[in-house]
Every structure is written in C-alpha cells, then in structure tokens.
Amino acid sequence: MKINLIGVPLNLGADKLGSNLAPKTYREANIIKIIKSIGFEVKDCGDVEVLKANEEDKYKHHPNLKYLNEVIDANTKLAEKIYQSLSNGDFALVLGGDHSLGLGSIAGASRAIKNIGVVWIDAHGDINTHLTSPTGNIHGMPLAASFGVGHEALVNLYEERIKVKEENVFHIAGRDLDKGEIELINKSKGQFYTMDKVKELGIEKVVEDMLNYFKDRVDAIHVSFDLDSIDSLFAPGTGTPVENGLSVDDAKFILESLASSGMMCSLDIVELNPLLDKDNKTLNIAIDIIKNTLNKLKLSLSNELSA
C-alpha cells in the first residue's frame, strides 16, 4: 500500500488567509521523508488547484455561501484524486487547507467505498447550512452536506447523491456549536460525542464505543481531523482555536486506534494556519500525529500479512 499525499491549499471555505499555506509548510518540514522513514512508499499527488477569487466577489454565486463556485471546483478535483487513490488500493492522506475540503474527501472516498463510515474530529459541528450559518463560511458545512443536509450544490458535489449515511457518522470533540447545529444534532441518527461527553466517559471509552459502533456496520472509515479539536492552549495555529479541547495525547490515541483497527482508508489533517502558529507548535503536533498514526497503520498492515 502506497501513501498518496494530496495537498489542498484552500482557505476560501474559512474566508481567512493562512490555511492555504499549510501544504507547502508540511512539505518544507519534510513530511514526505518522514513518511518514507516509516517504511511506506509515498506518491506525492501535488496540490489540488484552487481557483483565484476576489474578496469583493465572495457572494457572487450565492448570498449566504462565500466563494461557492471556487470551493466546489477545488473539492470536485479533490474528490477525483481521492477516488483514484482508493480505487488503486492506496491510502489517501490529505493535507489542508480549511475543513471545507471534507466535502471532496468524503465524496471521493464514498465513490470508491460505497458503505463508508466517517469519523469527524473537530471543535465545531461543521453541520451548518446556508440557512443556519452565522458566517456563510462553507468550512462550517461539509459534514451536513455529506449526509444530505444543506444547499444542493454542496450536497450534490462530484455526484448527485448522499455521500455518507447519517448513521455512519461519528463526531468527536464538539464544543463550539451553533444553535442550528445543536438542533440538527438533537435530531440526528449519527453519533455526536461532545467534549463534555468525552470528559465524562474518558477517551478510552469513547474510542471503544466508536470502534464497536463501526464494527460490522461499514466497509471502511474516512477520518477527518481538524487541529482545532485540540485545546487551543496546545495548538494555537488554527483558524478558529477553541479552549477546553482534546489533549495532544487524546488526539493521538483516537487516530492511532483507528489506524490499528484496519478500517481507516483515508485521512484529512486540516486547518493548520502557519500565519497564526507560534514557534511551529501546531505544525510539530500535526507532524507528530501523522507520524504516529502511520506507524500504527504500518504495524497493522504487517500484522495482517503475517496472520
């Protein structure tokens, strides 16, 4: 199995400069060399091209959705890259970029694997729509659109279909939720483990619940990890940092457990903003998380071969 590295220099979904610099920052920090040192062959698929946009045109295509056409275009290109990667039996590692890229990664993964599960690790719900969002930023909408809720242009991105069953979604670390998102969560068939619930149960129980929930339910899991799920005390270099989040060890444990499960087929690491980082603190955490996760993935694959 190769690791297909896909950069997404996208910041238009967040309407904030910085996350578009993340793929370049990871490469300059020798992420490819680090992955190769684990024992994986790496294919650098380059960066998804993001159309240029003028700030005064942000609402050109919809009054409540900023940069709609540009976000859709980038995500459609990403979806195809993910689909090709998984169809070839490779693991897709997506480095972004704001979390609107989840639209494309889930769309591509769910075309390759019909009964996909999604683990979304994030301080925010990302289940707003054009009707509930207080900002119009599409990075707050990708999860809802992926399970069929929201504007039809986002829901039907890449292919006209729902990308993931709502009951196949497991969200961890939510703590900065908008009113409309809370209403949707309360009616949802998905699993939503807020930080309050994580602290109540403990991270080991949360992970146990997650793995048991997906066992025999899905064919594979796409994981979308937002660095703002980590407490802002530890990870300041994100576009929308939130306090009282996961510890770094908690985040590592979740991702390592998913890698060891044999179910994870693809992974997004999103919302690194080098312009807001302090002494590369968040970058170093992200690289450490990637390294640890892929080490566990390598070990899991080795165990499968020797079994």
Rank of each mutant, 00 (worst) to 15 (best):
L294G: 10
L17Y: 13
D249N: 12
Y59C: 03
L12D: 00
L17C: 06
T25I: 06
E204Y: 06
L246H: 09
V248E: 12
S302L: 15
N75K: 06
A173S: 15
N128F: 05
S257H: 04
I116W: 00
V198L: 02
Q84N: 09
I31Y: 12
L21H: 12
L51S: 13
K298C: 12
L17Q: 14
K16Y: 11
I38Y: 07
Y67D: 00
F40H: 06
P134Y: 07
V242E: 00
D288T: 13
S188C: 06
E204M: 04
K197P: 09
E243C: 13
N54S: 13
A29D: 14
K278Q: 10
P9Q: 00
V48A: 03
D228Y: 01
V218H: 11
M1Y: 08
G190E: 08
E159H: 15
N75F: 03
S266D: 01
L294H: 07
D73A: 14
K165W: 02
E28L: 15
G202R: 05
L246E: 08
P241I: 03
F170W: 06
V50W: 13
K278N: 10
G108L: 01
G39L: 03
K24R: 10
G180A: 02
H139G: 10
S306W: 08
L21G: 04
I121R: 05
N69C: 07
G97P: 02
E304R: 15
I6S: 02
S146A: 15
M1G: 07
N244L: 03
S37P: 12
K165P: 01
T238M: 08
A123E: 09
I203L: 06
N303T: 08
Y67S: 00
A109N: 04
G104Q: 03
S133I: 09
F253M: 12
M1P: 07
F91I: 02
N284V: 01
S100F: 00
E55M: 11
N303K: 15
I162W: 05
A109W: 01
I34Y: 06
G202S: 03
E70R: 08
K16G: 07
I269C: 13
N212K: 14
Y158H: 09
H130Y: 05
N292S: 07
I116H: 00
G190C: 07
Y26P: 10
L21M: 14
I72R: 13
D196N: 15
G125M: 08
L68W: 09
K291P: 00
L258I: 02
D176F: 06
N295P: 05
W120S: 02
I289V: 15
L299K: 14
L275V: 05
P134Q: 08
N4G: 06
M263Q: 04
L12A: 01
L294K: 11
V8K: 04
K77G: 09
E55Q: 10
A144T: 14
L227W: 05
Y26A: 11
S247K: 15
D268I: 03
A173V: 00
I221G: 12
Y213T: 02
T135F: 15
Y213F: 14
V270G: 04
D57M: 09
D288Q: 09
K77I: 08
I182V: 10
M264H: 07
L299D: 04
G18K: 11
A109I: 07
L12P: 03
N295A: 06
L246G: 10
H99W: 02
L101D: 08
K36W: 07
